[in-house]
Design a protein around this nucleic acid. Structure first.
Length: 552
RNA sequence: CGGGGUGUAGCUCAGCUUGGUAGAGCGCUUGCUUCGGGAGCAAGAGGCCGCAGGUUCAAAUCCUGUCACCCCGACCA
């Protein structure tokens, strides 16, 4: 099978896995229920067996989130929400450092506001939740039973924001009078609703959490600088905090944000070699300024429309983190964003030494917490729960905590700890002197952070190919419904990866690629030198290669 | 909105064809033995079988209706 694991040293742990997984996944009701050998991987199925199902199982096993009873909506659990809080904390600082201020705008957008920008309406109309009533009254429901039914119809329906350009534009039009009011640099942390047909935890849910930056500028150049500056912030965050390598690029017309003039993005490759759009930054020109009447008087007293931008990242980033780093034993958290860095597991099954071991662990935890790391201090859990040690260790493995430290009586006697790194095999443990561990813990975390990035980047580079002909392109991806291209029953891996090809943008070509190969143009990279060439689809001249891939 | 499927214990499901009053595994509780890597044995708690009608002496099982969810297609951060 073409699935390619990032190279890592977890040798020998997956060899006997297939039989067990087949039984577990099978619908064969006569499958023997005999005891299986201890699992060789914590997650069933593995990535190679069924990537989409593996993803769901990791989210669940790592206790990041779960499906709620509300269709398409997720419950973000404490461990997952703590990751999001770290994302917020770091990004918020980056936004503040680039001059932005936070504000908050209404969840509800009057339909009339929403209608102001034609392309915008067209783009979002199909996925809007609409509030039409403001009261519940006793009555007979559709199923004939008594209950509460909506009453008090609104004069004007309210759209639950799928994005806030229009409602924020309404404020901007009041706030901006003079060129002295510009630039206006605002960010909002919020939830939004997009009524999607199909949902997947973190990657696409009906309601999700995000931030949306909205800015207004006196001229086109400034707005473009802002657009690219925030793209850079996102790339910086993705690579240096999430350890997720990204390609910065511009979307072609078909993939553009509804109403934008230019849409830029960061694109990342997941372990199944599909692309994930991890963040977007839009240059909106004067489109929304016209729609929302954002005007200002310049120094000469001449009235002009402002130039606006918007940019956002969402809880989808957590999905990207999972699909970039997690393995067949569960989540692996990049240390800089991990809710906790170290779990200390006291081995206390001998009553006579239990208290001493606990004291030793608590003292160790206190010392570690005194150390600064990645803008906070080292976060430590002491897991003294009364459950079996193996169970406990596996729970933390699945949750992806970077470092696991076990301390038993024997370690304590030698003033040592037994440490395992989550990005190494779970049997790859080493004994360290306690003080050495304390002294080097941040170095270890940083090493883990950078090796996670390096591994992800190597995976991407290995699966990125320069393609110079249509035939080569087709062969790289395989036909959309080619059984081999989707690799097995669950679509464990897709064929292909990133194809870099010369391309003269043409919506018709992209439609055709999408229909026939399920491939889209992810972006035209903004970095790197121009390279004159010939579009492999049309033969027209092209100045640079575009990135093509199957995508989420 | 088209095509398919499923609703039974906290979770995953069996039982339904051939009606006879509720099952398994996991999880949970308790006890004993274990314990430096996902333990074993024993006992126990937990379900008016999605909902509403109908057939029948008797319905999880058959019939009708209804609701919900899942999967596959056209959209998306």
């Amino acid at each position: 099978m073409p699935f390619v694991l990032p190279s890592r040293s977890c040798a020998g742990t997956h060899s006997t896995n297939t039989k067990r997984s087949e039984n577990t996944m099978s619908n064969d009701k006569n499958a023997p229920s005999q005891k299986q050998a201890a699992p060789t991987s914590a997650i069933t199925p593995t990535r190679a067996e069924n990537y989409p199902e593996w993803y769901q199982q990791v989210v669940r096993a790592a206790e990041l989130a779960e499906n709620s009873d509300v269709r398409g909506c997720m419950v973000i659990k404490p461990w997952g929400y703590a990751v999001w809080e770290n994302v917020q904390r770091v990004l918020d600082k980056m936004f503040k450092d680039t001059g932005h201020k936070n504000a908050y705008f209404p969840l509800f957008i009057p339909l009339s506001y929403f209608e102001k920008e034609a392309e915008h309406v067209e783009g979002f109309a199909k996925e809007c939740a609409v509030v039409t009533h403001h009261r519940l009254a006793p009555g007979i429901k559709a199923d004939g039973k008594p209950g509460l039914i909506p009453a008090g119809e609104l004069q004007e329906p309210l759209v639950v924001r799928p994005t806030s350009e229009t409602i924020i534009g309404a404020s901007f039009s009041k706030w901006v009078q003079s060129y002295r009011d510009l630039p206006l640099l605002i960010n909002q942390w919020a939830n939004v609703v997009r009524w999607e047909m199909r949902t997947r935890l973190f990657l696409r849910t009906t309601e999700f959490l995000w931030q949306e930056g909205h800015t207004a500028h006196a001229n086109s150049d400034e707005a473009m600088v802002e657009t690219l500056k925030m793209l850079e912030v996102y790339a910086d965050f993705a690579e240096n905090w999430m350890a997720m390598p990204v390609i910065k690029g511009e979307k072609t017309e078909g993939e553009r944000f509804p109403g934008a003039v230019h849409t830029y993005c960061i694109e990342s490759m997941m372990q199944d070699r599909k692309a994930l759009q991890a963040g977007t930054s839009h240059f909106l020109g004067q489109n929304f300024a016209h729609a929302s009447d954002i005007k200002f008087s310049d120094a000469d007293g001449k009235v002009s429309f402002a130039w606006t931008t918007s940019w956002g990242v969402s809880t989808r980033l957590i999905g990207g983190m999972i699909m970039t780093h997690a393995d067949d034993d569960g989540m692996i958290l990049p240390p800089r964003l991990a809710p906790s860095h170290v779990v200390i597991i006291p081995v206390t099954h001998k009553p006579e030494t239990a208290q001493a071991v606990l004291d030793f662990c608590n003292k160790l935890a206190a010392d570690l917490r005194g150390i600064a790391y990645a803008g906070r201090h080292v976060e430590v859990e002491v897991d003294a729960r009364d459950i079996r040690g193996g169970d406990k260790a596996w729970q933390w493995i699945k949750k992806g905590i970077p470092l696991r430290v076990e301390v038993g009586p024997r370690d304590m006697e030698q003033d040592s700890v037994f440490m395992a790194r989550r990005d190494r095999g779970h049997k790859d443990k080493q004994s360290l002197k306690r003080d050495d561990f304390v002294a080097t813990v941040t170095t270890i975390l940083e090493d883990m952070q950078s090796s996670m990035f390096a591994r992800a980047k190597a995976h991407r580079d290995e699966n990125t190919k320069r393609v110079d002909s249509r035939a080569e392109f087709d062969a790289f991806f395989g036909a959309k419904n080619d059984a081999e291209s989707e690799d097995g029953p669950g679509g464990g891996a897709v064929k292909g990866g990133f194809a870099l090809a010369h391309y003269a943008p043409d919506p018709k070509v992209e439609d055709e690629l999408k229909t026939r190969l399920a491939v889209t143009c992810r972006c035209i990279p903004v970095e790197g030198a121009d390279e004159p060439g010939i579009c492999i689809f049309s033969g027209k001249p092209s100045t640079r290669r575009a990135v093509f891939a199957k995508s989420y």
